[in-house]
Design a protein around this nucleic acid. Structure first.
Lengths: 116, 116
DNA sequence: TAAAGTAGGGACGATAAAGTAACTGCCTGA
DNA sequence: TCAGGCAGTTACTTTATCGTCCCTACTTTA
Protein backbone atom coordinates (compact mmCIF):
# COMPACT_ATOMS: atom_id res chain seq x y z
CA UNK A 1 0.00 0.00 0.00
CA UNK A 2 1.47 3.31 -0.94
CA UNK A 3 1.98 5.63 1.98
CA UNK A 4 0.87 8.73 0.19
CA UNK A 5 -1.62 7.57 -2.35
CA UNK A 6 -2.45 9.79 -5.28
CA UNK A 7 -5.15 12.15 -4.18
CA UNK A 8 -7.77 10.61 -6.40
CA UNK A 9 -11.28 9.80 -5.26
CA UNK A 10 -11.01 6.50 -7.05
CA UNK A 11 -8.19 5.59 -4.79
CA UNK A 12 -10.50 5.85 -1.82
CA UNK A 13 -12.98 3.51 -3.41
CA UNK A 14 -10.30 1.06 -4.37
CA UNK A 15 -8.95 1.21 -0.87
CA UNK A 16 -12.40 0.28 0.31
CA UNK A 17 -12.95 -2.58 -2.09
CA UNK A 18 -9.42 -3.80 -1.98
CA UNK A 19 -9.49 -5.31 1.46
CA UNK A 20 -10.03 -9.00 1.63
CA UNK A 21 -13.57 -10.25 1.91
CA UNK A 22 -15.00 -6.85 1.09
CA UNK A 23 -16.35 -7.59 -2.34
CA UNK A 24 -17.50 -10.96 -1.15
CA UNK A 25 -19.57 -9.35 1.58
CA UNK A 26 -21.10 -6.90 -0.87
CA UNK A 27 -21.82 -9.76 -3.20
CA UNK A 28 -23.62 -11.76 -0.55
CA UNK A 29 -25.67 -8.79 0.57
CA UNK A 30 -26.70 -8.02 -2.98
CA UNK A 31 -27.38 -11.63 -3.85
CA UNK A 32 -29.08 -12.82 -0.70
CA UNK A 33 -30.51 -9.52 0.48
CA UNK A 34 -30.08 -8.06 3.97
CA UNK A 35 -28.51 -10.45 6.44
CA UNK A 36 -27.92 -10.77 10.13
CA UNK A 37 -24.36 -10.82 11.40
CA UNK A 38 -24.32 -14.51 12.04
CA UNK A 39 -25.89 -15.36 8.70
CA UNK A 40 -23.35 -13.19 6.98
CA UNK A 41 -20.55 -14.92 8.76
CA UNK A 42 -21.88 -18.26 7.66
CA UNK A 43 -22.31 -17.00 4.10
CA UNK A 44 -18.70 -15.88 3.87
CA UNK A 45 -16.88 -19.07 4.67
CA UNK A 46 -13.63 -18.72 6.49
CA UNK A 47 -13.99 -15.15 7.66
CA UNK A 48 -13.37 -14.42 11.32
CA UNK A 49 -15.71 -12.36 13.45
CA UNK A 50 -12.97 -9.83 13.84
CA UNK A 51 -12.57 -9.32 10.11
CA UNK A 52 -16.27 -9.35 9.44
CA UNK A 53 -16.86 -6.73 12.10
CA UNK A 54 -14.10 -4.55 10.78
CA UNK A 55 -15.22 -4.77 7.18
CA UNK A 56 -18.81 -4.06 8.10
CA UNK A 57 -17.79 -0.99 10.08
CA UNK A 58 -15.73 0.19 7.19
CA UNK A 59 -18.47 -0.33 4.64
CA UNK A 60 -20.94 1.32 6.93
CA UNK A 61 -18.62 4.27 7.43
CA UNK A 62 -18.45 4.64 3.68
CA UNK A 63 -22.22 4.58 3.40
CA UNK A 64 -22.18 1.41 1.38
CA UNK A 65 -24.22 -0.64 3.81
CA UNK A 66 -26.71 0.16 6.53
CA UNK A 67 -26.86 -1.34 9.97
CA UNK A 68 -30.06 -1.89 11.87
CA UNK A 69 -30.03 -2.99 15.45
CA UNK A 70 -33.16 -4.35 17.07
CA UNK A 71 -33.04 -3.73 20.81
CA UNK A 72 -34.12 -7.20 21.68
CA UNK A 73 -32.30 -9.62 23.92
CA UNK A 74 -30.10 -10.79 22.46
CA UNK A 75 -29.84 -7.89 20.05
CA UNK A 76 -30.47 -8.69 16.41
CA UNK A 77 -28.35 -6.72 13.97
CA UNK A 78 -29.13 -6.67 10.27
CA UNK A 79 -26.97 -5.34 7.47
CA UNK A 80 -27.99 -4.43 3.95
CA UNK A 81 -26.81 -2.53 0.90
CA UNK A 82 -27.53 1.17 0.55
CA UNK A 83 -28.05 2.76 -2.88
CA UNK A 84 -24.37 3.49 -2.81
CA UNK A 85 -23.76 -0.18 -2.33
CA UNK A 86 -25.82 -0.88 -5.41
CA UNK A 87 -23.60 1.47 -7.37
CA UNK A 88 -20.72 -0.77 -6.52
CA UNK A 89 -22.68 -3.84 -7.31
CA UNK A 90 -23.14 -2.84 -10.92
CA UNK A 91 -19.40 -2.34 -11.26
CA UNK A 92 -18.74 -5.66 -9.64
CA UNK A 93 -21.17 -7.21 -12.08
CA UNK A 94 -19.27 -5.74 -14.99
CA UNK A 95 -16.08 -7.06 -13.52
CA UNK A 96 -17.70 -10.43 -13.08
CA UNK A 97 -18.62 -10.50 -16.74
CA UNK A 98 -15.08 -9.74 -17.72
CA UNK A 99 -13.84 -12.42 -15.38
CA UNK A 100 -16.10 -14.97 -17.02
CA UNK A 101 -15.01 -13.94 -20.46
CA UNK A 102 -11.38 -14.19 -19.50
CA UNK A 103 -12.01 -17.52 -17.95
CA UNK A 104 -13.58 -18.73 -21.18
CA UNK A 105 -10.45 -17.51 -22.92
CA UNK A 106 -8.41 -19.57 -20.54
CA UNK A 107 -6.86 -16.69 -18.69
CA UNK A 108 -6.76 -18.30 -15.27
CA UNK A 109 -5.29 -21.63 -16.25
CA UNK A 110 -1.56 -21.21 -16.19
CA UNK A 111 0.47 -19.50 -13.59
CA UNK A 112 -0.49 -16.04 -14.63
CA UNK A 113 -1.54 -13.82 -11.77
CA UNK A 114 1.44 -15.10 -9.88
CA UNK A 115 4.51 -13.02 -9.72
CA UNK A 116 6.84 -14.98 -7.50
CA UNK B 1 -6.01 -11.77 2.18
CA UNK B 2 -7.98 -14.91 2.67
CA UNK B 3 -5.86 -17.99 2.59
CA UNK B 4 -8.37 -20.03 0.66
CA UNK B 5 -10.21 -17.54 -1.45
CA UNK B 6 -13.54 -18.46 -2.87
CA UNK B 7 -12.91 -20.19 -6.14
CA UNK B 8 -14.37 -17.39 -8.20
CA UNK B 9 -12.79 -15.99 -11.33
CA UNK B 10 -13.61 -12.53 -10.07
CA UNK B 11 -11.38 -13.17 -7.15
CA UNK B 12 -8.45 -13.60 -9.51
CA UNK B 13 -9.16 -10.30 -11.18
CA UNK B 14 -9.57 -8.54 -7.88
CA UNK B 15 -6.35 -10.05 -6.69
CA UNK B 16 -4.73 -8.56 -9.75
CA UNK B 17 -6.21 -5.10 -9.42
CA UNK B 18 -6.02 -5.00 -5.69
CA UNK B 19 -2.31 -4.58 -5.36
CA UNK B 20 -1.10 -1.08 -4.78
CA UNK B 21 -0.24 1.01 -7.82
CA UNK B 22 -1.84 -1.48 -10.17
CA UNK B 23 -4.84 0.53 -11.21
CA UNK B 24 -2.70 3.62 -11.35
CA UNK B 25 -0.39 1.96 -13.83
CA UNK B 26 -3.29 0.83 -15.97
CA UNK B 27 -4.70 4.30 -15.81
CA UNK B 28 -1.50 5.91 -16.99
CA UNK B 29 -1.10 3.45 -19.83
CA UNK B 30 -4.65 4.02 -20.98
CA UNK B 31 -4.46 7.77 -20.57
CA UNK B 32 -0.99 8.46 -21.92
CA UNK B 33 -0.66 5.49 -24.25
CA UNK B 34 2.26 3.06 -24.30
CA UNK B 35 5.17 4.14 -22.15
CA UNK B 36 8.75 3.24 -21.55
CA UNK B 37 9.74 1.94 -18.16
CA UNK B 38 11.34 5.15 -17.03
CA UNK B 39 8.49 7.30 -18.23
CA UNK B 40 6.06 5.05 -16.40
CA UNK B 41 8.06 5.36 -13.24
CA UNK B 42 8.00 9.11 -13.52
CA UNK B 43 4.27 9.06 -14.24
CA UNK B 44 3.51 7.05 -11.11
CA UNK B 45 5.04 9.26 -8.46
CA UNK B 46 6.46 7.50 -5.48
CA UNK B 47 6.64 4.01 -6.87
CA UNK B 48 9.90 2.15 -6.54
CA UNK B 49 11.51 0.34 -9.42
CA UNK B 50 11.04 -2.87 -7.54
CA UNK B 51 7.30 -2.43 -7.22
CA UNK B 52 6.92 -1.18 -10.76
CA UNK B 53 8.79 -4.14 -12.15
CA UNK B 54 6.77 -6.56 -10.12
CA UNK B 55 3.44 -5.03 -11.08
CA UNK B 56 4.38 -4.93 -14.73
CA UNK B 57 5.39 -8.58 -14.68
CA UNK B 58 2.13 -9.45 -13.01
CA UNK B 59 0.02 -7.48 -15.45
CA UNK B 60 1.95 -8.92 -18.32
CA UNK B 61 1.47 -12.43 -16.98
CA UNK B 62 -2.25 -11.78 -16.85
CA UNK B 63 -2.25 -10.58 -20.44
CA UNK B 64 -3.33 -7.11 -19.46
CA UNK B 65 -0.31 -5.34 -20.85
CA UNK B 66 2.26 -6.14 -23.48
CA UNK B 67 5.97 -5.66 -23.25
CA UNK B 68 8.16 -4.81 -26.19
CA UNK B 69 11.88 -4.80 -25.90
CA UNK B 70 14.01 -3.16 -28.54
CA UNK B 71 17.42 -4.82 -28.67
CA UNK B 72 19.24 -1.57 -28.74
CA UNK B 73 21.91 -0.45 -26.36
CA UNK B 74 20.70 0.48 -23.90
CA UNK B 75 17.60 -1.62 -24.40
CA UNK B 76 14.36 0.31 -24.72
CA UNK B 77 11.37 -1.42 -23.19
CA UNK B 78 7.86 -0.23 -23.88
CA UNK B 79 4.66 -1.27 -22.16
CA UNK B 80 1.11 -0.84 -23.35
CA UNK B 81 -2.42 -2.07 -22.75
CA UNK B 82 -3.70 -5.17 -24.50
CA UNK B 83 -7.38 -5.54 -25.42
CA UNK B 84 -7.78 -7.24 -22.09
CA UNK B 85 -6.37 -4.17 -20.46
CA UNK B 86 -8.98 -2.10 -22.21
CA UNK B 87 -11.67 -4.34 -20.72
CA UNK B 88 -10.43 -3.29 -17.33
CA UNK B 89 -10.24 0.29 -18.34
CA UNK B 90 -13.94 0.48 -18.97
CA UNK B 91 -14.62 -0.89 -15.51
CA UNK B 92 -12.19 1.52 -13.97
CA UNK B 93 -13.94 4.30 -15.82
CA UNK B 94 -17.26 3.26 -14.35
CA UNK B 95 -15.68 3.16 -10.94
CA UNK B 96 -14.21 6.57 -11.54
CA UNK B 97 -17.63 7.96 -12.35
CA UNK B 98 -19.01 6.55 -9.14
CA UNK B 99 -16.10 7.99 -7.24
CA UNK B 100 -16.80 11.43 -8.65
CA UNK B 101 -20.47 11.18 -7.84
CA UNK B 102 -19.70 10.13 -4.30
CA UNK B 103 -17.24 12.90 -3.99
CA UNK B 104 -19.90 15.37 -5.11
CA UNK B 105 -22.12 13.88 -2.43
CA UNK B 106 -19.38 14.52 0.08
CA UNK B 107 -18.54 10.93 0.73
CA UNK B 108 -14.84 11.40 1.23
CA UNK B 109 -14.91 14.32 3.59
CA UNK B 110 -15.29 12.90 7.04
CA UNK B 111 -13.46 10.01 8.52
CA UNK B 112 -15.30 7.42 6.55
CA UNK B 113 -13.06 4.86 4.93
CA UNK B 114 -11.17 4.70 8.16
CA UNK B 115 -11.80 1.87 10.46
CA UNK B 116 -9.37 2.46 13.30
C1' DT C 1 -25.77 -27.49 34.83
C1' DA C 2 -23.79 -26.90 30.69
C1' DA C 3 -23.70 -25.73 25.98
C1' DA C 4 -24.73 -22.83 22.27
C1' DG C 5 -26.22 -18.65 19.91
C1' DT C 6 -26.31 -13.49 19.65
C1' DA C 7 -22.91 -9.48 18.21
C1' DG C 8 -19.05 -8.34 18.84
C1' DG C 9 -14.16 -6.33 21.65
C1' DG C 10 -9.18 -6.81 22.72
C1' DA C 11 -4.57 -8.59 22.86
C1' DC C 12 -0.92 -11.09 20.77
C1' DG C 13 1.93 -13.03 17.16
C1' DA C 14 3.16 -14.76 12.69
C1' DT C 15 3.59 -13.80 8.02
C1' DA C 16 3.38 -11.62 3.91
C1' DA C 17 3.84 -7.36 1.57
C1' DA C 18 6.07 -3.15 0.78
C1' DG C 19 10.00 0.07 1.26
C1' DT C 20 15.07 0.99 1.01
C1' DA C 21 19.35 0.55 -0.65
C1' DA C 22 22.96 -1.09 -3.35
C1' DC C 23 24.36 -3.29 -7.50
C1' DT C 24 24.60 -4.60 -12.69
C1' DG C 25 26.54 -3.25 -17.79
C1' DC C 26 26.50 -0.32 -21.30
C1' DC C 27 26.48 4.20 -23.43
C1' DT C 28 26.21 9.39 -23.86
C1' DG C 29 27.29 13.97 -22.75
C1' DA C 30 29.85 17.45 -20.08
C1' DT D 1 36.64 10.94 -16.13
C1' DC D 2 32.66 11.27 -13.93
C1' DA D 3 27.85 11.63 -13.58
C1' DG D 4 23.58 10.05 -15.19
C1' DG D 5 20.11 7.46 -17.74
C1' DC D 6 18.50 2.94 -19.25
C1' DA D 7 15.90 -1.31 -17.22
C1' DG D 8 16.00 -3.72 -14.06
C1' DT D 9 17.84 -7.44 -9.93
C1' DT D 10 19.05 -8.79 -5.33
C1' DA D 11 19.26 -8.54 -0.47
C1' DC D 12 17.78 -6.58 3.80
C1' DT D 13 14.58 -4.43 6.84
C1' DT D 14 10.41 -2.83 8.46
C1' DT D 15 5.61 -2.32 8.58
C1' DA D 16 0.92 -3.67 8.50
C1' DT D 17 -2.45 -7.01 8.16
C1' DC D 18 -4.77 -10.76 9.19
C1' DG D 19 -5.65 -14.89 11.95
C1' DT D 20 -6.21 -16.99 16.44
C1' DC D 21 -7.68 -17.11 20.82
C1' DC D 22 -10.24 -15.58 24.71
C1' DC D 23 -13.55 -12.38 26.79
C1' DT D 24 -18.32 -10.10 27.40
C1' DA D 25 -23.77 -10.55 29.10
C1' DC D 26 -27.89 -12.51 28.37
C1' DT D 27 -31.19 -16.24 26.96
C1' DT D 28 -32.80 -20.59 25.38
C1' DT D 29 -32.47 -25.39 25.01
C1' DA D 30 -30.92 -29.98 26.21
Amino acid sequence: MPKTPPQCPMDSILRLLMGPWTTYIIWVLSDQGPQRFGALKRAVPGISTRMLTERLRMLQGAGVIWREQAETIPPAVTYGLTPRGNDLRSVLDALGNIAERWKAEGAFEDNAFRVG
